[in-house]
């Protein structure tokens, strides 16, 4: 059946075929039915701004498919990507729970299906369904550990090359596909966005990637990156 951006749209959570694989969504049928009754399903193109840093919380977005970047601004006004959110993540939960402004902005980086739940409905849902609280806690805990890993990388890396090597190795671990040539990755981020993930400039990322290519550590063709010398990249990382 035709759908926007050829996404596989899940209109009801109870009938969602991937629910069991998702930390938040993998709840009992009755809790998921309650979730169905309060969520609004939407399909968003790449580049949609879901909420912005400093905005009063309107509610949470469950990322059903597609990915979104969470960004914040440093005290010097530099944009920093704090996380690339993957399908199954709940966005805006901490601000919604605390009733404080969103601490980060969220923007889709590819077409995405999102289920929006208004703040008052989400809080009521948590109040009634302790199971949903547990699953939200697991989600928040995962986000916390991811943020701690970023802090470690930003704070302990000695050089920008080390930060970039660490980022590429993380991608290999999460989404890499082993091939005879090395580990293949699909990188849909621009050099500017990669720079925002490791707290540097676009020019430095372009220069470092060229350097990695020249040293035959990686090969880049369009959005495909093949990591040929994983071991050498690992040697560059001290954290």
């Amino acid at each position: 059946m035709p759908s926007p951006y050829n996404l596989e749209i899940h209109n009801t959570c109870t009938e969602c075929s991937v629910r069991a694989e998702r930390i938040f969504c993998n709840m009992t049928q009755s809790t998921v039915s309650a979730l169905d009754s309060i969520k609004f399903t939407g399909v968003y193109p790449k580049g949609s701004l879901l909420f912005v840093e400093g905005e009063q919380p309107r509610g949470v977005f469950i990322l059903c498919s597609g990915r979104a970047k969470l960004t914040t601004s440093s005290t010097e006004g530099k944009t920093l990507i704090v996380k690339i959110a993957e399908p199954g993540e709940v966005l805006g939960a901490s601000a919604t729970i605390l009733g404080k402004p969103y601490e980060v902005s969220a923007e889709t980086i590819e077409p995405a299906q999102l289920n929006f739940i208004k703040r008052e409905d989400f809080l009521k849902f948590l109040n009634i369904h302790s199971e949903a609280c547990m699953h939200t806690a697991q989600q928040l805990s995962e986000k916390y550990h991811s943020a701690q890993r970023e802090i470690r990388s930003l704070g302990l890396s000695q050089t920008t090359a080390e930060k970039l090597a660490k980022l590429i190795l993380d991608w290999c671990e999460r989404n890499g596909e082993d091939t005879p040539k090395g580990t293949r990755l699909k990188v849909l981020l621009t050099h500017e966005e990669i720079a925002q993930m490791i707290g540097t400039t676009r020019e430095t990322v372009t220069r470092l990637l060229s350097d990695f290519k020249r040293r035959k550590l990686i090969d880049v063709k369009g959005s495909t990156v093949v990591v040929m010398q994983k071991h050498d990249l690992e040697h560059m990382v001290s954290i």
Partner: peptide, 17 residues
């Protein structure tokens, strides 16, 4: 947990600056 995450993001802003 929400407070903790906000504190992490705050640290990231400071470290990146």
């Amino acid at each position: 947990l929400s407070q903790d995450i906000n504190a992490c993001w705050d640290s990231m802003r400071t470290i990146s600056a």
